[in-house]
Design a protein around this nucleic acid. Structure first.
Lengths: 189, 189
DNA sequence: GCATCATACTCAACAATCTGATTAGTCAGA
DNA sequence: TCTGACTAATCAGATTGTTGAGTATGATGC
């Protein structure tokens, strides 16, 4: 019952279709939850059945029709209960880390490559998030926005995403360098 | 098929029973994968059936008997394939982040509390990981150990865990402070 | 002397997530 | 004009992960 709340939280900013939500889950929302479109459509259907969101049909000429959803009063109440309940600790779950655990013995060269790819991907994500943050805070500087801004929730979660990506990138680059250096030392001997 | 490889990677350091493995998944291995004991026992059974690990019974006097597992040649080959394959990007999935997304509107006070609890939990984890790292590298300093050490895989993943916890803690404290400050400002008005 | 913790593991039921395919019209570029 | 990408969604099936309970013995603490 957690995707449920992630969807409600994302929908708090306005009316979105399943498709738009899927996009959001690829960028901003991805900072706190990840889900595939199929899951979102399924979850929206359940949320509507339970009366936590309300959908309305929008007929379009040049595009397929779509359904826009918004959070109902019951949905807001559900979020309140959720916010008050205890949350389970977060944890990392990453294929690449599993590989690094074995990288001093198994598949070193390939892992180095993947670390560098990851670091580049993180660079791209960092730029994207930086742009998103600038957009969210408008003209204000960060301090000011955080204290006076209307809607800072998405900004705060983006900050987390940004920090995560930055640190992930640094770690990838450092570990790639260490593994390379070790390969070089062992080649010399 | 990812827990599979996490178990193989963890088992690379020696022979472990399901129970010991469960402990490892609570501390060091938790830096790259999380799993409950039930899953581990089930996965070990599957791995043994597939010939990727081999188990042997150890009869104990004062404790229940146990089965110790080690990675077979086929298991090592499986890890090699895994290391060479592409890995999917990692992502955060965190209840608390979902709450922060809504925290400027919903459940602010409770979320502040939870952020502070998380920060304290992260402090504890950081100390634990620090100790684990010191233990892994023995007398050597980090630079030296990373270049000359025998088995640095677990050390590298712990470094990631440490960085993650540190940054998580900083973010939690900062966000808690921001939310508090906003409450105070709004109370004044 | 009783409660609780640690070792060691198992089973069943359920919920959540992922994989992969399918439909169908529009629009931009080679 | 063909190709591929974008909008908008749905379906079935498989895999993974969680919840919760249960078994049995020895050790430790109050």
């Amino acid at each position: 019952m957690a995707l449920r709340h992630a969807v409600l939280a994302a929908l708090l900013d306005g009316e979105y279709s399943g498709y738009q939500l899927a996009k959001a889950f690829d960028i901003g929302v991805a900072n706190f939850w990840h889900a595939l479109p199929q899951q979102l459509y399924a979850e929206l259907a359940k949320l509507e059945k339970d009366g936590l969101v309300a959908g309305r049909q929008v007929v379009q000429e040049t595009r397929p029709n779509k359904r826009l959803f918004r959070v109902t009063a019951a949905g807001r109440a559900e979020l309140e209960n959720f916010a008050a309940a205890a949350s389970k600790p977060s944890f990392i779950r990453d294929d690449l880390l599993v590989k690094v655990q074995t990288a001093d013995r198994i598949g070193t060269a390939s892992v180095i490559e993947q670390l560098e790819e990851r670091a580049s991907a993180a660079d791209a994500k960092i730029e994207l998030l930086g742009a998103l943050l600038r957009q969210l805070r408008g003209d204000a500087d960060e301090e000011e926005f955080l204290l006076d801004g209307e809607r800072i929730g998405p900004y705060l979660t983006c900050l987390r995403g940004l920090a995560f990506e930055g640190e992930h990138r640094d770690w990838c680059r450092r570990i790639a360098a260490v593994l390379k250096e070790r390969l070089a030392i062992r080649a010399e001997r």
